[in-house]
């Protein structure tokens, strides 16, 4: 486990790397599924091992920052015969474009999965145009 490492975080959709010098611990980027419904964009993030209290989802200007911290999976005296799990905090940043109503965001956490609903502002919703 390396401390004091700079972690480069890729911003979604822009490809611009953004470094976070304050990242002191191991970071895991959670997998995400993104779904678009007529009313909203739904982000489904896999964050197993996190407790609801330690999750934070922050909308900061054009970025949605999702964080969650985990408790260690094993006790101190464990001898790991097999190790695939990172057991590290989750962190992911999403670039939120215009057309999202930034004050209307819903989030739910269940079974280790965080679901964030970003409701579209009126201009993005498709509208039927009446033909006279």
């Amino acid at each position: 486990m390396t401390k004091n490492t700079e972690v480069a975080v890729m911003q979604q959709n822009t490809g611009l790397p953004m470094t976070r010098p304050e990242a002191q611990e191991n970071i895991v980027v959670p997998f995400v599924d993104i779904c678009e419904t007529p009313e909203a964009f739904v982000l489904i993030l896999d964050m197993p091992g996190v407790s609801k209290e330690s999750i934070s989802a922050t909308m900061d200007r054009g970025s949605l920052i999702v964080k969650g911290s985990v408790k260690p999976y094993h006790r101190e005296n464990a001898f790991l015969l097999f190790n695939e799990l990172r057991n590290a905090s989750y962190y992911r940043v999403f670039n939120i474009g215009e057309g999202i109503d930034r004050s209307n965001v819903e989030a739910q956490f269940e079974h280790g999965v965080l679901t964030v609903k970003l409701f579209k502002s009126d201009e993005l919703k498709s509208r039927e145009i009446q033909i006279k």
Partner: peptide, 15 residues
């Protein structure tokens, strides 16, 4: 799979 309403599209699928 998480239930999605009609007329929804998947934009990204990593899980």
């Amino acid at each position: 799979e998480t239930a999605t309403p009609e007329k929804s599209t998947w934009l990204r699928n990593e899980s």
